[in-house]
Design a protein around this nucleic acid. Structure first.
Lengths: 244, 244
DNA sequence: TATTATTGTATCATTTTGATACAATAATAA
DNA sequence: TTATTATTGTATCAAAATGATACAATAATA
């Protein structure tokens, strides 16, 4: 997360980074028919937060976000979308950060650049859960997935940020055809439907969903997948491209 | 605009404002069946730009945007939507600002806070053209409407910002029901259709459009409008609320 | 070989959208 | 006064999209 947390110790003096502005990432994964979010834990201070980071003085803001997601997941080619700037003055609260710095034994004074007001540019990322390797940053010690309905209390307005990320994801699901970014390279129609149902929070009719997805012309049938269970084997699909 | 332009002279020393971050506003109006954008001109320097401004140290970012739009248009209750952060390092170019400062006789040195890198949070606003009273800011001398297809060369990436604002507007037109923000309190169905056609850049079928709009249940019929021409008088409508 | 669960697709009903037709004006012209 | 004209509001029918149901085709197990 940003707002001061998860900063790179090599730059703890603020040299080389933009001040007052940071990025946060809501990194979504999908597993066991559940939508998951990647969170950092600062266990010494008992604090949970979204992954985030700062912007180097000559770095594109979008690249800073890519860097953060790459560092937390080990993944390169991920779907990443800027969705909102959280910039209310009232959200600014440096007490959790002080707690983290104190717990970590970092020296600081009240004028430390990390304790000043920050606004954050927020992104959501869709990653392949099976390929991601969660890794904490320099300050935190745990980085792991949480089901959306079992998220611990988070610092500042990070819970609202997740809520807004989710509703943005919901809005763009049909229009931008982004659901498949949460799945491995090959998947069954039932897998895809589970992604949609979980994100939208409602059941979809199987036959209607299948007709719609096939009608988009972006799915390629690969082979049959024998699940080892007593029924017809479903096809495996791969996403190929945008419709013509 | 921001990126250094249009700053408040009382704070030219940078005290009281956040550094490195600014807001720009793409203010849309509608008149003569044309979509228009409000631009500032710095005629001494021969430079055109979007209206923008800075964020006071204790001000919400969204409030800073509201303030800018209010100052340029004289309007209070306007529709305003944050749509993107432009944060590429490559977009940063302080030469136009230097030109403006020189033309204005403002003293400055290379380390002036306005000459450092800025990223901008960008908003689009939809205002009632008939009520807006364009007003330049402290540095510029002309503030006026431009048709979208006769926009002069703009500083930095302001042309791209307008393009992105327009496509965001297009995407949200049906979903968010925002078209009416461009019209006066009462309007005919033909007026409304003209707004939609201009924004979307294509003709719509009159009867289908009318059925759709009436079906939303958000229009109230006020009275007949006698246009003075040889045909049936259209109804005047008023927007009442979101559909139930 | 029957049974079971699930998949892929066909079919029909319902709803939405597209296209056309036409009566109802409000001004002007004859 | 009475056609003529341009537009508006709505009805109507066709076409397309969506919703709902049915059913045959498996792949495993009993």
């Amino acid at each position: 997360m940003a707002d001061g947390y998860g900063y790179d110790k090599r730059a703890a003096d603020g040299k080389g980074f933009m001040h007052g502005i940071a990025i946060d990432a809501v990194i979504f994964g999908f597993h066991d028919r559940q939508l998951k979010v990647l969170l950092l834990e600062y266990s010494l201070a008992g604090i949970f937060a979204l992954p985030g980071g700062f912007i180097r003085e000559t770095e594109n803001v979008n690249d800073a976000a890519l860097r953060v997601v790459r560092e937390r997941t080990g993944l390169g080619n991920i779907f990443l979308d800027q969705f909102y700037v959280f910039g209310d003055y009232g959200r600014f609260d440096n007490r959790p950060l002080k707690a983290i710095m104190q717990a970590g034994g970092t020296a600081f004074d009240e004028n430390h650049w990390l304790l000043q007001r920050f606004i954050t540019v927020d992104y959501y990322a869709l990653v392949d859960f099976t390929k991601a390797v969660p890794a904490p940053d320099e300050e935190s010690d745990i980085c792991r997935w949480y089901d959306l309905d079992t998220i611990p209390p988070l610092i500042q307005d990070h819970k609202q940020i997740i809520a807004k990320a989710l509703s943005t994801l919901q809005d763009g699901l049909d229009k931008k055809l982004i659901g498949f970014n949460l799945l491995p390279d090959t998947f069954t129609m039932a897998d895809l439907q589970a992604v949609y149902e979980t994100i939208l929070g409602k059941k979809l009719q199987r036959t209607v969903f299948q007709r719609k997805m096939l009608g988009l012309g972006i799915l390629q049938r690969i082979a049959k997948k024998h699940t080892g269970r007593a029924h017809k084997a479903p096809y495996l699909y791969r996403f190929v491209s945008q419709p013509a």
